[in-house]
Amino acid sequence: MTMPDPDGQLAEQLLRLTRRVHRIQKRHLQQRELGVTPAQSRLLRTLAHWGSPPRMADLAERLEVVPRAVTTLVDALEASGMVRRVPDPANRRVIRIELTDEGRSTLRELHAVRRSAAEEILAPLTGDQRETLGTLLDTLIDGAPAGRC
């Protein structure tokens, strides 16, 4: 007889929820016909939260992907006018990536997509349940043991 594995079950539930979130966000992206993949969306959001334009290596590190993957994403976003490569003023050999006005406009639309996807995902929960879920997720994201925040 096998013993129940509550932690394994929770891990499986989290993975299933993650896949569901990705599916719903992808569907919402396709409905808006923004022409942006989830990976490109993530790169745009990352750029928006950066103070000054980052180097491609910085983006790769932040996104936890290989530099070649960032190059592919930047190439596609640059072709669509959402980002541009700019030389670093202190070192002309270094290339930095910055958002364009088109990229900022797309980000506003992406924010609306994420909001509508979140509304769909969270619809079954009450306000109190959402608050509790947020607190629990913060604890998991931060990695702090419960009660030691």
Rank of each mutant, 00 (worst) to 15 (best):
E12R: 00
C149E: 15
L29F: 13
Q9V: 09
A90M: 06
V65L: 13
L29K: 04
R92T: 08
L44R: 01
E109T: 10
R93D: 14
T71L: 08
L107R: 06
A118W: 01
Q30C: 02
A146C: 00
R55C: 11
G127L: 11
A57V: 10
H28N: 07
R68D: 14
G147Q: 06
T2S: 14
I95K: 14
R16A: 15
A48V: 04
E61C: 00
L73N: 06
L10K: 06
H28M: 12
I141A: 13
D58Q: 15
M82Q: 15
H28D: 14
D138E: 15
D58P: 03
A146H: 00
R108I: 02
S105K: 10
V74R: 03
D138Q: 10
R115F: 05
A79T: 02
G8R: 03
R16Y: 03
V21P: 04
I24L: 15
R148Y: 13
L15V: 13
A57Q: 09
A60L: 07
R115W: 06
A60I: 04
P87R: 11
R96E: 13
V74Q: 04
R27C: 04
L15H: 07
G134C: 11
R108T: 12
N91V: 09
E98W: 11
M3P: 05
R55E: 15
L47C: 11
T100G: 01
D128N: 08
Q31E: 15
R42Q: 11
T37L: 11
T106L: 10
P67E: 02
H22N: 10
R68N: 12
I95G: 02
R85C: 05
S80R: 10
P54I: 03
L110H: 11
Q25N: 12
A60D: 05
R96G: 03
S41C: 11
G8N: 04
L136T: 00
T37E: 14
R62M: 05
T18A: 04
L63Q: 09
L43P: 09
E102H: 06
L99R: 00
T72V: 05
A146K: 00
L34C: 10
E64N: 13
L43H: 03
H28K: 14
T135M: 05
A117P: 14
T100E: 02
K26Y: 13
A144H: 09
L14M: 14
Q9T: 07
R16C: 07
V86K: 02
R84V: 06
D142A: 13
R115E: 15
P89I: 05
H22F: 12
R84P: 05
P6K: 01
R114F: 12
P124V: 09
S80C: 05
A57T: 10
A112K: 07
E12N: 00
P4H: 04
A117Q: 08
A69W: 05
V86D: 03
R104F: 03
L137M: 15
Q25S: 12
T46S: 09
A90K: 07
K26L: 15
G81M: 02
P6I: 04
R104Y: 04
A76H: 02
D138P: 04
L14Y: 09
V83S: 11
D58G: 10
D101F: 02
Q25Y: 06
D101I: 01
A112L: 10
R19S: 13
A79H: 04
R62D: 04
T126Q: 11
R68A: 14
P145H: 07
P4S: 03
V36F: 07
A146N: 00
R104N: 12
R108H: 12
R23S: 15
R114P: 05
T135K: 08
D128F: 02
I121G: 08
L63G: 06
S116P: 01
